[in-house]
């Protein structure tokens, strides 16, 4: 395993079956991806429940981290989707914490980054997308489709604007999922490619082994950057979820 990761920067994204399972003709095997999703869920649950056990008035570090996570997401929801959007706080908080923990657990060497697989991010993006449509239809009925008709546009231009707005709306789950997946995939690949440089330059010997300090420093820098990306992408996912929910809740009311 270690050998393969050193030689192939894409090996880290391979999905391996741990426990083969079948439901009819469907393959529902428990894979390393499933394992790391379970680990992420357990990690979030333990982080939150153990962190607030003391319930101190003046929090210690761990409780402070939990409260900051809560406040952070709550502020994001309030400022992007309004007070009414707080009804969807559990959804946004769950998505944020899950994505964040998947990204962060992916930073552990030899672990598996669940969010570097587009099927995972696309499933979450589709979930958000369908929730927005459902909420919009439930709150506004067919008036929800006025979302595609910007107010104050001359009617002769509508045949052009409505399809464009529709395509823009339909492209949301694509850009939402591709953004997260591409960032994680690119970052982790880059880390392993740099690591491969270090190994092969060391092996080449002579001047090269001295020069291998370059990619080594590169790895240190990119690792720091990847931690930033891990947080940022979870945040961006949460912010966009809020903005999309805001569309469903408020339509054009507060432009």
């Amino acid at each position: 395993m270690f050998q393969q990761i050193a030689n192939d920067p894409l090996h880290q994204f391979q999905v391996n079956t741990i426990l083969p399972l079948k439901l009819g003709s469907w393959d529902i095997s428990f894979t390393n991806a499933s394992l790391w999703m379970v680990i992420a869920v357990l990690g979030v649950s333990l982080f939150l429940t153990l962190g607030i056990q003391r319930r101190a008035l003046v929090p210690r570090r761990w409780q402070l981290m939990v409260e900051m996570a809560y406040e952070f997401v709550a502020n994001t929801v309030r400022s992007n989707a309004g007070e009414e959007g707080m009804r969807f706080f559990p959804l946004v908080f769950t998505l944020f914490m899950f994505v964040l923990f998947c990204n962060l657990f992916g930073m552990i060497p030899y672990s598996f980054t669940v969010t570097s697989h587009i099927i995972v991010t696309f499933a979450m993006a589709m979930f958000v997308f369908l929730t927005v449509i459902l909420v919009g239809l439930m709150r506004h009925g067919l008036r929800f489709f006025k979302l595609f008709v910007p107010s104050g546009v001359p009617s002769w231009i509508l045949p052009l604007i409505v399809p464009i707005e529709l395509i823009s709306f339909l492209s949301r789950p694509v850009s939402l999922s591709v953004r997260l997946f591409a960032n994680m995939l690119a970052g982790h690949t880059m880390l392993k490619v740099f690591a491969g440089f270090v190994v092969s330059m060391m092996a080449a010997g002579g001047v090269f082994s001295v020069m291998s300090i370059g990619p080594m420093l590169g790895i240190v820098f990119v690792t720091g950057l990847e931690f930033l990306v891990a947080f940022l992408q979870a945040y961006v996912f949460a912010v966009l979820t809020c903005i999309y929910l805001n569309d469903a809740i408020h339509l054009h009311e507060d432009h």
Partner: peptide
């Protein structure tokens, strides 16, 4: 870092 910007008027600054 949580942008605890309670002083902001109505928020929704990020709305496109």
């Amino acid at each position: 870092d949580d942008g605890d910007d309670d002083g902001r008027p109505k928020g929704r600054a990020g709305r496109p």
